[in-house]
Design a binder for these strands. Structure first.
Length: 336
DNA sequence: TACCCGTGGCA
DNA sequence: TTGCCAAGGGT
């Protein structure tokens, strides 16, 4: 039996690989809200949210977003600030700006594009996302290349290949009859079995096709480039409340977001004691953020009083949302 | 091309 | 606690 398998594997390696991979995926796939809808709009939203973001983090944002923007027309005619507010907390806000821009492009063009080039030309859609939408929503034979696929292919071939080489190999391996299942299976394999460190080779459906597994080099591939050092910084955010309104300013980043004032911005403020502290990291910066209540006279220039009840209508930075949350938590536990 | 962009979970 | 890393795109 084993000998027969080895023979078939040698004669038809791609066929064997596809069957094993897709067979495994059909048993292990997760039930995702955008799957099987076949709706390009939903798949597009999901794919943009999934860029550099885990499935588990995306799901609640996806549900809320679809409820808020059930159609591309609705999304296109909503002011950008409200789209950003719905995206607040997910990160990489240029995705939301590009999504909004692309929604307008889609409406102008009279509907969602159904070719790879048409999809690829949308704002915020690169090679990966275009292939994902083309294959999952339209069944077109384009192989996706994301971080998972790079890892899986590097190990299958046991080589530190260039991007172009990986793309060519992924396209070669792709099952042209089932591109949607194949692409999702490759990514799911990378996410759950072919892990960056200590992959679960014993559970891998395609271990018989894997050269790194054969040579025991799976932990050395793919080669990772060095990372930039993280800076550690401290900030003190102030919660200044007056008559049910909160003093807020424009954050320097992300552009268009609101944020609590920082101690240094309100030199005349009277500070209370530090009410909370938390960690918040943003690309190469690791912040230790303290929160304190404070009082000011009048309305400091450059700041705005925003009614607490309307705060969800504005895009607010995550640091500020965490600060408000830890203050609320502290005060409600004190009452209890 | 290398770097920037947010966030949360995990070891 | 700290560092790593994820369904990338734009510049």
């Amino acid at each position: 039996m084993r000998i027969i398998f080895q023979y078939i594997n040698r004669m038809f390696p791609k066929t064997v690989f596809r069957r094993l991979l897709i067979g495994w995926y059909e048993k292990h796939q997760r039930d995702l809200p955008w799957r099987r809808t076949g709706d390009p709009y939903r798949i597009w939203i999901a794919e943009i949210m999934l860029q550099q973001t885990r499935v588990a983090a995306v799901i609640p944002f996806y549900e809320r977003f679809l409820e808020r923007f059930p159609s591309v027309e609705k999304l296109a005619r909503t002011p950008e600030e409200q789209v950003l507010a719905a995206w607040a907390g997910l990160g990489y806000y240029s995705r939301a700006r590009n999504l909004h821009k692309a929604a307008k492009q889609i409406v102008e063009r009279g509907g969602f594009p159904s070719t790879y080039d048409g999809i690829r030309s949308l704002a915020g859609v690169g090679d990966y996302t275009a292939a994902a939408i083309a294959s999952i929503a339209f069944g077109l034979p384009y192989a996706v290349v994301d971080g998972n696929v790079i890892r899986v292919v590097s190990r299958l071939d046991n080589e530190a290949a260039t991007r172009a080489r990986i793309e060519a190999r992924a396209q070669e391996l792709l099952d042209p009859k089932r591109p949607s299942l194949f692409n999702q299976a490759m990514m799911e394999l990378g996410a759950t079995v072919c892990l960056p460190r200590d992959p679960l080779c014993l559970l891998c459906p395609v271990q018989s096709s894997c050269e790194a597994r054969r040579r025991g080099t799976q932990n050395e591939l793919p080669v990772r480039s060095g990372r930039k050092a993280t800076k550690r910084l401290k900030r003190l955010l102030l919660v200044v409340e007056k008559g049910g309104r909160l003093l807020m300013g424009q954050a320097s980043r992300p552009k268009g977001f609101w944020e609590l004032p920082e101690a240094g911005q309100l030199p005349a403020a009277v500070l209370g004691s530090v009410a909370g502290e938390f960690r918040h990291s943003i690309t190469h910066h690791d912040y230790r953020i303290s929160v304190a209540r404070a009082q000011v006279r009048g309305g400091p220039p450059g700041f705005t009083w925003i009614p607490l009840k309307k705060i969800d209508l504005h895009p607010v930075t995550t640091a500020t949302r965490k600060a408000l949350a830890c203050l609320t938590e502290k005060e409600s536990s004190r009452k209890a």
